[in-house]
């Protein structure tokens, strides 16, 4: 994964706007949700780094907002994988978007 660049990462996120996306969202130790499907209407990356806030608006009535994201990559399946790592390299949060479901 590479360090988030606000503009580039936001541009990657916005490629999913207007489509149905499957979302995996996770705060390690506390919660994850896998494969909820939404139609994305807006996507934002905010912050001055090294950790960023990401917000998604979907279906005309929903928000997903996460803090603490530091890294991202687009994988070979075209899925956008964002994650937040602490200074010891442990993952705190994850936010993944795909056009198809992630394996159950």
């Amino acid at each position: 994964m590479i360090r988030i660049n606000r503009e580039q990462t936001e541009a990657e996120l916005r490629k999913f706007v207007g489509s149905d996306v499957y979302v995996h969202s996770e705060a390690t130790s506390y919660v994850f949700v896998r494969n909820f499907k939404v139609r994305l209407t807006e996507a934002f990356v905010a912050g001055d780094g090294p950790s960023y806030r990401v917000a998604l608006r979907f279906d005309g009535h929903g928000w997903l907002r996460m803090e603490g994201l530091t890294h991202y990559e687009t994988d070979e399946a075209g899925r956008l994988l964002l994650a937040g790592f602490d200074d010891r390299g442990r993952m705190d949060v994850a936010l993944h978007l795909g056009r198809g479901p992630f394996p159950e």
């Binding site: 807006e42 934002f44 905010a46 608006r57 907002r65």
Partner: peptide
């Protein structure tokens, strides 16, 4: 407005 969303 909704809490934590003003910047967006």
């Amino acid at each position: 407005y909704h809490d934590k969303t003003i910047e967006f």
